[in-house]
Design a protein around this nucleic acid. Structure first.
Lengths: 349, 349
DNA sequence: CTGTTAGCGCGTTCAA
DNA sequence: TTGAACGCGCTAACAG
């Protein structure tokens, strides 16, 4: 048995360092927090003591003493699909966690699909907020609103949907082209050598994430699975009924349809159409976001794979990034990278 | 725009509640922490004030006042494979995070594959530890050692590898049969209708997790993909060179080999044998754990899919569970469930 | 049964 | 350039 580095049972305090260095609390504090007004010689003495005792600041006590607290706004879509409802719940849970770190979250529900409304909401945001997380829209007005917030000194992170050309601090969400490529690889491999058509259903091609997914999907499918060709993209507007009709028509029209990739919402419509057609087990269907619905379709065998982003991770990551930024702490990007999850019936959480 | 529930900018303190209820700090403290010795009527008054002000305790300040700190031991395998090295690093990072919560982690490296050594290490653990996380072995001696720790009042969580019959508090790791089923589904679908043999390579069948994975794999493959039959399990002892030899022999012997499922380590050996045989792109290879090596094989196309458990999540989850248990806080099991990740070349993090 | 008081580790005046 | 002293929100010992 090899013992690891045993840490001291209880951490050294500022006072321990002060005693070891033969100076006062305040002096150690100045050195530790890199403030002016200490002789170089004293600095050296204190730093030596810090190193010797392995002193590490107690951030909780520091925040307590500073009386520091944070207030963030989360701007989320109003009355939307299952994924967004989940996201909302996860933000709520994150808020409870954050409260124990002296951080407070207000949730604002707005129609994020209307650039004017979204930009207006951002413009109207009070300056009590030190940070904002927003499900963005890649539109000039929204970009300007984000830049304006940034100019006012409010940190902005985009959540799930990015506005890359804006001056947001950080994007919390998946790499959408990569998600599309992942879907394509699964589609191509599940269909193996079979020949035929693959349909792509998006909510709207004016949504950046849908376009990016579709782009990644096409890229891999055309280059690596030439036996499969994609049909023109169908826009279901994330509406189940409309998507059902379009899918039903498609199934009727094309006997050579082998697969469906849905890069938006409206999954209940696809399931209904597939099951009504009797080709549910034959046509490979891959979609995004694990919800109560897609989980059911997966278990039932109608749906073959789900590409997922974890709304809980996303909510917590957004909060952590804002908190770290406001406390002047560094953020480690690879720690905050949102994974592209793949769920089959067998690895459902 | 619909506004969400706006929280007060700054939280109510114990003192605010005391003032509102017309009692002293100590009384509020007693009520809030459910201690004895307060008249029912007073309790009610205080609780009303708590509710009215939306009071929530500042856990950081509480811990500070309590002078409470925690000390945990993490017992990990000595000098082992890439996955275990990653796990070790992640435990180290978790230790740094925990230090800011007044928690301290000592890492002990022992030969966890020898039940006597592992049990001895657990038996010898000092009582300064309030909790232990251990990569366990499902063996009577180890189980007894865990039960003994539990009897001494030390909380034990098993990490990555469980000892289900013991009295451990919690298991932090993936559902291994489900992981095996996931691998089988991928194998079956990637091979589609092709007929042939699939090899299963385990480290050792006396390792519970390897057996469970292999069980899940067989279960799905035999029931859902009758075109594929599995060969007798090969035990590579998680050793690359031995695994390479066995794999090379297998490839030479069987022209009808279509897939390899490796439910243990030794991946470098499999890659070498596959690439030397010239059948790397033809034989579907699925394995466990994303490491620097498996990542490379995936990108190169030799490896087709990786079933992964995130060592960072596992390390943090173990720490959170121990911390919560020692602070008397509840743990939410679904929050702590470790996901079965699937990685293809396209969704590598 | 209830209130008073002295810290926990740190940041921040204000004095020296 | 340095130090002493107070307070952040809470707990715990002691007093009433």
């Amino acid at each position: 048995m090899r013992g690891g580095a045993t840490q001291p049972a209880v951490r050294a305090t500022l006072e321990d360092v002060a005693r070891a260095a033969g100076v006062s609390l305040a002096t150690v504090d100045r050195v530790v927090n890199r403030r002016e007004g200490v002789r170089a010689k004293t600095v050296a003495r204190v730093e030596a003591a810090v190193a010797k005792l392995g002193y590490r600041a107690d951030v909780a006590a520091a925040r307590l003493a500073r009386g520091q607290s944070f207030r963030f706004a989360f701007v989320l879509p109003a009355g939307s699909n299952s994924f967004m409802t989940n996201l909302s719940e996860q933000v709520q849970r994150t808020a409870e966690w954050l409260a124990s770190q002296r951080g407070f979250i207000d949730i604002l529900h707005v129609d994020v699909f209307d650039p004017d409304v979204l930009a207006g909401a951002l413009d109207g945001l009070s300056s009590v907020y030190q940070g904002v997380a927003v499900v963005a829209l890649d539109h000039p007005k929204v970009r300007d609103a984000i830049d304006e917030l940034t100019a006012r000194g409010i940190a902005v992170v985009t959540l799930v949907s990015d506005a890359p050309s804006s001056r947001r601090l950080h994007y919390v969400g998946i790499d959408n082209p990569a998600a599309g490529r992942t879907a394509a690889t699964l589609m191509g491999r599940f269909l193996a050598a079979r020949e035929g058509k693959v349909a792509v259903i998006a909510g709207s091609l004016s949504l950046r994430d849908h376009t990016e997914r579709q782009f990644g999907f096409h890229q891999i499918l055309s280059s690596e699975h030439p036996n499969l060709t994609t049909l023109p993209v169908i826009e279901g507007r994330d509406d189940s009924e409309r998507t059902r009709e379009l899918t039903a028509a498609l199934l009727k029209r094309r006997n050579d349809l082998r697969g469906i990739y849905c890069c938006g919402a409206g999954n209940r419509g696809i399931a209904a159409a597939l099951e009504a057609s009797g080709r549910a087990r034959d046509v490979i269907w891959i979609t995004h976001e694990l919800t109560q619905h897609t989980r059911r379709f997966l278990v039932r065998g109608t749906l073959d794979a789900v590409i997922n982003q974890d709304p809980g991770h996303e909510a917590r990551s957004a909060a952590r990034v804002l908190l770290a930024h406001c406390s002047g702490e560094p953020i480690s990007p690879d720690q905050e990278r949102i994974r592209i999850d793949i769920f089959l019936r067998d690895n459902l959480p």
